[in-house]
């Protein structure tokens, strides 16, 4: 079993969980086993997957972004207002946001600040800006984003095509490119990377800016699906994205992340919500059952990571 490397073991649990959940959904509601059905099931997975990748990039350099939900909400508000009425101004604002993320990476590194705290503060900043921009729900999605998100490619629904593209792009960026190795190295052992002659400052700024970029895409795609925005539209994304990374086999420290796993984790979380509504669980217990699914998947992971340890040695 030489092809079964530790890295692949890491992916096995998320993949198995997703498959089991998908089979359960098909069994409960056979009509979902179609183009339209799959599209509906995974529609909202695209923005969540993008936010999960963004969170993963921050966790890769040993940070944690507690402002992900408010930031994606803010981006959604910008997309539904400025990007639709004055595309140039909107684009400038969004580029500015990515620059701010890069600057956060720099400040966190230079002042030796805990990322959790800085992003905690930023969550108030983004939340405030979003409320200022859209005090009441409204705005409209730009035509072209709407077109991209609702387009119907042959055979496979857009949501799945997009998820595969996101996973492949992030995998190449983080796992295959040489700069990705440096980035993961910063999470693993910062001093080693520095001694090897790489700029930790630049690596951190890049990781944060890339996270900002993916989070911007998340907000834009969300508006493409919902057609309008409000200041609280994506608040759940902070916790969802963290859970997605962990479900996908990532870890909080040490630069051990898996982009493909993260996307699968996001898909699993999206599917769990549909699964519960098909089970006709009382609305009172919907949230609780989501917690239970999270626990079950992580228990499964415990069983399999014990084997991973055996494979690795």
């Amino acid at each position: 079993m030489t092809w079964l490397t530790a890295e692949r073991w890491r992916l096995l649990v998320p993949a198995v969980s997703l498959t089991v959940l998908l089979i359960a959904v098909f069994w409960l509601q056979p009509r979902t086993m179609s183009y339209t059905g799959l599209n509906l099931l995974f529609n909202l997975a695209v923005p969540i997957a993008l936010a999960t990748i963004a969170q993963m990039l921050i966790m890769m350099v040993n940070g944690l972004d507690l402002s992900m939900g408010t930031f994606v909400s803010f981006v959604a508000c910008v997309t539904a207002t400025f990007l639709q009425t004055d595309p140039l101004v909107g684009a400038l604002i969004l580029f500015g946001c990515i620059a701010i993320y890069g600057a956060l990476g720099v400040v966190i590194y230079l002042r030796n600040l805990p990322a959790i705290v800085v992003t905690l503060g930023m969550s108030f900043v983004w939340g405030g800006l979003a409320v200022l921009l859209l005090p009441t729900p409204g705005g409209a999605a730009p035509e072209w984003i709407r077109w991209v998100m609702t387009s119907k490619p042959p055979f496979v629904p857009m949501a799945i095509v997009a998820s595969v593209i996101i996973a492949a792009a992030a995998h190449w960026l983080v796992m295959r490119s040489s700069f990705g190795v440096v980035l993961r190295g910063v999470g693993g052992n910062e001093r080693t990377v520095e001694r090897a002659g790489w700029s930790v400052l630049r690596a951190r700024a890049t990781a944060y800016a890339m996270a900002g970029f993916f989070a911007v895409l998340s907000g834009m795609s969300l508006v493409g699906l919902t057609t309008s925005a409000d200041a609280n539209i994506a608040l759940r994304y902070t916790l969802l994205s963290i859970a997605g990374v962990i479900l996908g086999g990532g870890e909080f420290v040490g630069g051990r992340v898996s982009p493909i796993g993260a996307v699968i984790g996001a898909l699993t979380l999206t599917l769990a919500a549909s699964f519960l509504s098909f089970l006709r669980i009382s609305p009172d217990w919907q949230i609780g059952a989501q917690g239970a699914i999270l626990i079950i998947v992580l228990a499964l992971r415990l069983v399999l990571t014990r084997r991973e340890a055996r494979v690795a040695h």
Binding site: R111, G121, F124, G128
Partner: peptide
């Protein structure tokens, strides 16, 4: 909105002021 925004800015400012340089 302004209240939230300024709360965030002030939190970050306090943290940076209380932090040490690398």
């Amino acid at each position: 909105g302004v209240r939230l925004f300024l709360t965030g800015v002030i939190i970050i400012a306090v943290i940076i002021a209380a932090s040490r340089r690398l």
